[in-house]
Design a protein around this nucleic acid. Structure first.
Lengths: 133, 133
DNA sequence: CTGCATCCTCGGCGATACTG
DNA sequence: CAGTATCGCCGAGGATGCAG
């Protein structure tokens, strides 16, 4: 198959997210996914416990957070530290790799936040031009 | 409203993705979404036509690409240029804002691609440790 | 408090067909 | 080629309940 030999100017790497079957696409989705991005972002400040995290990531359900954390832990981006105390206490923190990912993610997040005025203006223009349809 | 006054250490901005109702969260999802990220990434190299784009973003359906492009255009990240020729020709290209977003996105994408060996190793370890369950 | 498992719904998304 | 409209599936994801 020449599928990985398409027309990707900047690629010498064995992994390519633009290829459907590449495993990197799955990881990218864990990272950029709805809850993945926010979870990594929240954890970048320091380790947090499950429910602390749940508060920080406003709107996430228990199930989704749990699921997200598992995926990130499996990918080696998050470290889970369970302490056998009572009541149980579990801390989640980024691995070094996770921190590097989170940095890039936060750069994007902050940029988007800082651009919202432009985005909102663009939307208005778009909606108005098209007659609100 | 005091909703934006929670406990966000690094925030002085009016927008905060960690807040459920903040419009920035929607935009972030357009940008980091499954097809949004790849579309912006592909467009960063230069303008592309609809079906060219479809080829570059391997696996995207016509409908999803169309939908994705509309969302990004509405947010002011992509510019659509239709030429009334026959056969019809439509070019998509990033706006300046779109380029800035794409840069950050690509930084993340490339990092993830470059880390896949580590990620895959971590997965193996995770799966093995847990007895493949 | 930290986690699973189960149920159920809603909408993302692909396939197909049609228009300009 | 560049889209839009419609249908239908399947899986993401929320609500609830139970265990350690």
């Amino acid at each position: 198959m020449t599928t990985t030999q398409e027309r990707t100017p900047e690629q010498d790497l064995p992994y390519n997210v633009f290829a459907k079957a590449c495993p990197s696409r799955g990881t990218l989705e864990h990272v950029t996914g709805r809850w993945g991005a926010l979870t990594l972002g929240a954890l970048h400040e320091g380790s947090l416990r499950f429910n602390e995290l749940r508060r920080r990531v406003d709107g996430v359900s228990e199930k989704m957070l749990s699921q997200t954390l598992h995926a990130l832990e499996r990918d080696g981006l998050v470290h889970r530290e369970a302490q056998p105390t009572n009541p149980p206490r579990v801390d989640y923190e980024l691995t070094p790799l996770g921190h590097q990912v989170a940095e890039r993610l936060l750069s994007l997040i902050h940029f988007v936040e800082g651009s919202m005025d432009d985005v909102l203006a663009a939307r208005e223009r778009y909606d108005t031009t098209r007659g609100g349809r």
